[in-house]
Simulated scan of single mutants.
Amino acid sequence: MTSESPSPPPCRACTERPALPFEFSMAFQPIVDVRNRSLFACEALVRGTDGSGAAAILAQVTDENRYQFDQACRVKAVELAARLQLPCYVSINFLPNAVYEPAACIRATLEAAKRYNFPPERLLFEVTEGEQVTDHDHLKGILGEYSRRGFKTAIDDFGAGYSGLNLLAEFQPDIIKLDMALLRGIDSDPVRQAIARGILGVCQALNIEVIAEGVETVAELTFLRGIGIYLFQGYLLARPAYEQIPDVDWSKVPA
């Protein structure tokens, strides 16, 4: 189990920690299960302490500070999840290019979970399909190591890039998140409907859960629920809240 895995030695990325030249924190957005109207997870989304969005922070990430930023994001997400007494998974986005050696670079995350008393079995790691990964074997190694340690893994923005099915053929995560661009207006678009059904069929055959992200209308949610998707994230249900767990608007979920 995750908590019983031996502690690896830290990698260089985890021990050489110059101060970041900017400050940041996290907002949280719920991922809900409409079957029982419960929280499945909350995604930790980077935000500036001055109210700026993720783009302003990510624009300051360079090759020189990428490793420290990735580590700091993980620790901050766990710290806040513990402080807010998050009752579900905390979903943490990670930068594959910032991970030297997966077993070693997870150490700071596990230490944070222990320090803040957050259950490590509630860690979920997301990587976006659009992330510029030059070494796919390295990414597979990261996802495989996290899976071996008992963490849930997810491919974010599935359908936004060109390599999704190739990656899925080589590694099967626990979850894929369908990209919002694919789902926009899906209730009235037969082409998008056919693509979504196809992806869902593949995932069901591989025992992979599907999250519909970026859902903005009741019609979108109703169609997606009708084809067998039960996990949702989007402005329809809750917008991200800075250092808080926002309330879910369950009135938008048809009975």
Rank of each mutant, 00 (worst) to 15 (best):
residue 21 P to T: 08
residue 21 P to N: 13
residue 22 F to T: 09
residue 25 S to E: 11
residue 26 M to V: 08
residue 27 A to Q: 01
residue 33 D to Q: 03
residue 33 D to H: 02
residue 33 D to N: 14
residue 36 N to F: 12
residue 36 N to H: 13
residue 36 N to S: 06
residue 37 R to E: 13
residue 42 C to Q: 11
residue 43 E to C: 02
residue 49 T to Q: 09
residue 49 T to N: 06
residue 51 G to P: 07
residue 52 S to M: 03
residue 53 G to Q: 06
residue 55 A to P: 07
residue 56 A to I: 10
residue 58 L to C: 03
residue 58 L to M: 14
residue 59 A to F: 04
residue 61 V to T: 00
residue 64 E to I: 01
residue 64 E to Y: 00
residue 65 N to L: 04
residue 65 N to Y: 06
residue 68 Q to G: 10
residue 68 Q to F: 07
residue 68 Q to N: 13
residue 68 Q to R: 14
residue 69 F to L: 12
residue 74 R to H: 02
residue 75 V to T: 13
residue 76 K to P: 00
residue 77 A to M: 03
residue 80 L to P: 01
residue 81 A to I: 03
residue 82 A to C: 03
residue 82 A to M: 06
residue 83 R to L: 13
residue 84 L to C: 08
residue 85 Q to C: 12
residue 85 Q to Y: 09
residue 87 P to M: 09
residue 88 C to V: 10
residue 88 C to S: 15
residue 89 Y to F: 15
residue 90 V to G: 13
residue 92 I to A: 03
residue 94 F to Y: 01
residue 95 L to W: 05
residue 99 V to D: 01
residue 99 V to Y: 03
residue 100 Y to D: 15
residue 100 Y to N: 12
residue 101 E to R: 14
residue 104 A to F: 08
residue 106 I to M: 15
residue 112 A to I: 10
residue 112 A to Y: 12
residue 113 A to E: 07
residue 113 A to P: 06
residue 114 K to W: 07
residue 117 N to Y: 12
residue 118 F to M: 12
residue 118 F to I: 11
residue 118 F to Q: 14
residue 119 P to L: 10
